[in-house]
Structures are given as structure tokens and as C-alpha cells.
Amino acid sequence: MSRHDTITRGCWILVGLFPIGVALWLMILLVGQGIPSLSWSFLLDEPVHAGRAGGIAPMLVSTTALLGLALLTAAPLALPLAVWHRTVTDKRARNRHDALIDTLAAVPSICWGLAGYVLLVRGAGFGFSLLAGGLTLGAMILPTLVRLWSDALADLPDGQVEAGRALGLTPFQQALHIWLPASAGSLLIGMLAALARAAAETAALLFTSGYASRMPASVFDSGRALSVHILDLAMNVPGGDQAAAGSALVLLTAVLLFAALLRPKHHSTRKVSL
């Protein structure tokens, strides 16, 4: 390769690293500002003075409950869809399915929040509650989960699928005894990545699970997710920046740990460079 090419290549790589660099700047800033407020009591105490002091324990509990409910809502629907997607031979039906799933994934999250408010908070009479928030979040992550799980099952070798069919197993038995054990690892990673997306969500929760910052006693209580807490501290609480940075650091760490497990879908195997 000529020197001219090396220079071109180097320039593109440098420019291409710039946006990643800004993301790193964000992380360094959060670590710098957030570390001082991190401590065991920050994680285990209730907030004091609208969150300026004290901890984030109720938000951690609410977030966990919301994620659990979202998973309980989305997983039982997503798994059959993903299995169907792997087995269906009708290409048109599959394309139609993909288009619908992608369309759902592109709906702005605040619109999910509005729908959750109309249908669950008011319509079903759940009020501002973890239940309404969890169901809304579950509907929102369903397309992500279906996509990630379909990708996970797509890696399953055709031989395994055919062997199951040749043994005369019913589709349900095939799924239970062959598919799930064989792709358990990638299914788990897909699930965590979908949960990362749910944990990062704020807009869909504003009108469904609400703002209450006390410890929730049941799923019918309103609970403030960690992301909503960060929003409130940064926007509405003067002097809340320190605690906001700490909370943001906790959220970012959790989300990125989950998301980093996901391997990119395609690996470049080509021998000829660009």
C-alpha cells in the first residue's frame, strides 16, 4: 500500500474516532462528577430534601420493579414470535412481520407514554403505578426483544432445526428441548440488551409510573424510575447537580454493562479492503 493510501486511511480513522471521543468525554465527566457522591449510603438510603441529600434506594427498587414487569410482559410474547420467525418459510409473512416490528420500534417513546396513560392509567384504572409503567415499558421493548431474540435464534445451525423436525418433535418440543438450550447464552444477552433500553427510558414513564420518590409498597404504587429522578434533579431541583451526576453514573454503568455484552451482528470477514 502506498504512503498516500496510509495518509487517507489515517485521516478517516481520526475523523471517525471523533464522535466516539465525545461519548468518552461524557463518560469521563460523569465519572469525575459522580464518583464523589457514590457511597453505600447513596445506594441504600431514601432521598432527603428532594434528592439533594440522602440516597436513591427507592428509585433503584422502582426501576428494578419496572424492568421486571416489563420483562414479564414482553418475554412471553417475544419468545413465540422469535421462534416463529426462525421457522416460518413463507418469506412474505416474514417480511410483513419484520416491517411491523420495525415500525413499532420506531414509535417515539413519549407516544408509548401517552398511550399507556390513556389505556392503563385512566382506561384500566391502574392510576400512576409501577404496574402501568411496567406494562407500557414492556410494550415498548417488545419489538427490540423480538429483534434481538430472532437474531439470537438465527445463529442456530440449520442441522439442529432439521434434526428436531426429523425426530418428529412438535414445534413446542423443538423449541423447549433444542432451541432454548442451544441458544440460551445469546437469548440471555439479548434480554439484557433489551432491559438496558428499558432502563434508559424516561419519556414513557413520566405519565405512567409517575414521580413519587418514596419507597413503593406494591406494584399499584407510583414509583420514580432512576432516569426520571435524574431528570427531576437536573431540571427542577436547584443544587441537585451533584446527586444527579451520581445517579446518572449509576444508571450509565448499569446500562452500558448490559449493552456491552451484545456483540455486533456482522463481522467483517472480507479479504479485500475497501
Binding site: L26, A199, A200, L252, L256, A259
Partner: peptide, 14 residues
């Protein structure tokens, strides 16, 4: 992929 997973409130805070 990881940069795309950064929550929007965190970007807002930044």
C-alpha cells in the same frame, strides 16, 4: 453500539 445505548437523560444531563 455502546455509544448508542447511552440513555437520553444522561445526554441531557451532559
Amino acid at each position: 453500539l455502546v455509544a448508542g445505548a447511552i440513555p437520553s437523560v444522561v445526554w441531557g444531563f451532559w
